[in-house]
């Protein structure tokens, strides 16, 4: 008896997804408010390094980091969503179920709505440090909420944890809305601008932290393939197979939240991608095995994020669309299509 014959199909799908990600990456570098030809992109990468042309600067300092950010953020959110869906055995779980994005938004709200009006000098004039402060506030807020939820993770079962994260999100959201209630319209505007999300704020100087967090999170998640497969059948089942259930649970939740928190810190809260990408991959690869789904989600998430940013930049038009709106507009039809074709998403979870 052989293993299921679907592996050749998987190889083909991986090749297609990989090619798609590369093509979208190139498209993201070429297309934007001004179109850059492939030849110019080639020149920027491999041409004379003493060339100080604007084109080269745009490609290397703006387009490339933005495209890489989209790629990394998409991968991170997709894998984080997959980990959450498996740990909670719930198709509706997303990277933010434990409340990391509400924690991040509280951090940012405190910076933009409380600190900034109080000490305007702090952010005024220094554009970069202002942004960095937002990043630190968002990451810090996410970390605090995460620490609270994970401190319960040893003691309660996963369903309680899910509800705990939800309640914490509501409570933190309430604090944010009180802050907004007492804030000036222009401050609220800048908070909103953050909440739309963008891949354009990660400069090369931030990439070291951003990239390290996400790449190490993604690599570490690959080590969870085997226990996650067992966890999908229930924690008791996993335990009987020799899985250290509590350790895997904490590790997976921590990894997912680290990745989701990093993305939220640097790019703002980007919804939908984290739910949609794992479902899309399950639908494409027709399996729930994590040694297929984790790499597939890395690629699928990257592809969706790159495609969404391409649409958000609205090449050929003036102006741009909020990224969050685009991910939902791209993602919702995908989920609906998968749902209709597959009849029943619960089938993947029981």
């Amino acid at each position: 008896m052989t293993q299921p014959a679907s592996s050749s199909r998987s190889v083909l799908l991986f090749a297609l997804l990989g090619a798609g990600v590369l093509a979208l990456l190139l498209a993201n570098i070429c297309l934007g408010s001004a179109t850059i030809s492939l030849a110019d992109v080639w020149g920027a990468f491999f041409g004379d390094s003493s060339d100080e042309s604007v084109m080269r600067q745009i490609v290397l300092d703006f387009r490339l980091p933005r495209a890489l950010t989209a790629l990394l953020a998409g991968s991170a959110l997709a894998v984080a969503g997959l980990l959450m869906q498996t740990i909670f055995r719930n198709p509706l779980a997303d990277p933010f179920v434990l409340g990391v994005n509400s924690g991040a938004s509280l951090g940012v709200a405190i910076v933009l709505l409380v600190l900034a009006p109080a000490g305007v000098t702090l952010t005024q004039g220094l554009e970069l440090s202002g942004h960095l402060l937002t990043v630190i506030a968002a990451t810090g807020g996410a970390a605090v909420v995460l620490a609270i939820v994970l401190s319960f993770a040893q003691r309660v079962d996963v369903m309680s944890l899910l509800i705990l994260g939800l309640m914490l999100s509501y409570a933190v959201g309430a604090v944010v809305s009180i802050l907004m209630f007492y804030s000036m319209a222009e401050r609220i505007q800048s908070f909103f601008a953050w909440s739309y999300g963008t891949f354009g704020n990660v400069a090369w100087s931030h990439m070291r932290v951003f990239g390290t967090c996400i790449v190490s999170g993604a690599v570490a998640s690959l080590f969870l393939c085997k226990p996650l497969d067992a966890m999908l059948m229930g924690e008791r089942f996993a335990e009987s197979l020799g899985t250290n259930v509590k350790a895997v649970r904490i590790f997976a939740l921590g990894l997912a939240s680290l990745m989701a928190g990093t993305v939220t810190g640097f790019c703002g809260p980007i919804g939908f991608l984290g739910i949609a990408a794992p479902h899309l991959c399950r639908y494409l690869f027709k399996t729930a095995q994590h040694r297929v789904l984790i790499p597939a989600s890395l690629l699928g998430g990257a592809a969706i994020a790159l495609a969404a940013d391409l649409v958000a930049k609205a090449p050929g038009f003036d102006g741009a669309l909020p990224l969050n709106a685009v991910t939902a507009l791209v993602g919702a039809p995908v989920i609906i299509a998968a749902l209709i074709r597959q009849r029943n998403l619960r089938k993947a979870f029981g």
Binding site: P4, L232, M233, G234, R236, F237, R282, K286, T287, A288, Q289, K347, A348, F349, G350
Partner: peptide, 9 residues
């Protein structure tokens, strides 16, 4: 309580 579910063969 552990009848298998999910997209496994």
């Amino acid at each position: 309580d552990s009848l298998p579910v999910g997209m496994f063969d």
